[in-house]
Design a protein around this nucleic acid. Structure first.
Lengths: 203, 203
DNA sequence: CTTATTTCATAACAATCGTTATGAAAGTAT
DNA sequence: ATACTTTCATAACGATTGTTATGAAATAAG
């Protein structure tokens, strides 16, 4: 009886590298140079392992990127929880955008947002990768919308508040800050943009 | 006596294709799939000419992209003039962002902004292409800043107005709308974002 | 120890990348 | 007409792309 599914660790030669550390290096490489424009050769250099090791550990390049992107985006329930615990929708969104401003200008990481940069364009066969990035954004969008609706129902925000528009604006500012960061804008400049983008909210 | 410089049209076999039309097709292709991820093979298909024709007419791929990008961005003095003639800095920026919302959701063109999408990432040897896109953005930024400063000096805007922050915000919203458009947002959604992004301005 | 299983390093795969020789074809200039 | 210049289509260039065949090496199970 052969086992078609991989036991992955039960038996056989063990992995000679730290899978999690290698994934982080791959994430940084994709973050820096994008999905399609980061070659397997670039990845082997960044991750410190050979090409066959990448394929046995992560599948193909597409799966490696998707896993790296999920690692970048983090646990979606964490953002949901942060929004739930925030004192208001406005405070939650303000913190999200200011955190993005900090993240996009880190010294130890590439500038900008991996979601915004790495899959901005690409050929036909990268369409599902772009769709996956869009899906991450839609998840964030939905969390923002729900939090705003909660504040409207609670009377914290006026009933004429438009949740979808404000969520769109928050997302646009965030992804736009990624472009500014890539162009060389520093952290203070991005934080100022983040604060300025919130002045339109009802208090 | 040999002429090292090309007379380009004085003599020899004439071009068999419309150079301007071919450039527009190239621009649309780069707009859709980006600089590095649009291959010469893609371009020959889109432009309807062979690879050697591309190289004799436009130089290499990099020069073709730069020319296509300049064609997309349009005459920089035109934006300068539009801002000078606008009734106010706020009106000028509002129109610029709403025009972008319209451009990014055209039916006959790819979604989003060529400047934002086509050179978001890329390998080392595409750094000058990214820098050229950044330069276009800096030019727009400078125009916005100068127009705001004019309104401050004229007393139209309060003296505490921060021109650079407002210009950064306008640029961030614009480039961010490109991401929304790529994700499938329609024209009305983008226009709503454009209007919402202006509510923070002093009236 | 033997067998089974998995990863290892090396090397190669076909396909595509951007770019360019090559010589015929199509024009202008003398 | 002859000479000159430039573009044409075809075909190929070396390099790199993502991916995998190969067999040795390393571990666990029997």
């Amino acid at each position: 009886m052969k086992r078609p599914q991989t036991p992955r660790g039960k038996t056989g030669r063990p992995l000679s590298f730290d899978r999690d550390a290698a994934l982080e290096k791959a994430m940084l490489a994709f973050w820096e140079t994008g999905y399609q424009t980061t070659s397997i050769s670039d990845l082997t250099a960044a991750m410190g392992i050979t090409a066959p090791s990448i394929y046995t550990a992560f599948g193909d390049k597409k799966h490696l990127f998707l896993e790296a992107m999920r690692r970048y985006a983090g646990d979606p329930t964490a953002l949901e929880k942060a929004f739930a615990l925030a004192p208001s929708a406005k405070a939650a969104v303000a913190k999200m955008i200011e955190d993005a401003a900090t993240l996009f200008t880190g010294d130890a990481t590439p500038k900008g947002c991996l979601l915004a940069s790495a899959a901005a364009t690409g050929s036909k066969d990268a369409a599902d990768v772009r769709e996956a990035a869009a899906q991450e954004r839609r998840a964030i969008h939905a969390i923002i919308v729900r939090r705003i609706e909660r504040d409207i129902e609670a009377g914290v925000l006026p009933p004429e508040t438009m949740p979808i528009v404000l969520a769109d604006l928050a997302l646009a500012v965030t992804q736009g800050m990624s472009v500014l960061a890539r162009d060389g804008a520093d952290r203070d400049a991005l934080r100022a943009v983040a604060r300025a983008s919130m002045t339109g909210w009802p208090s």
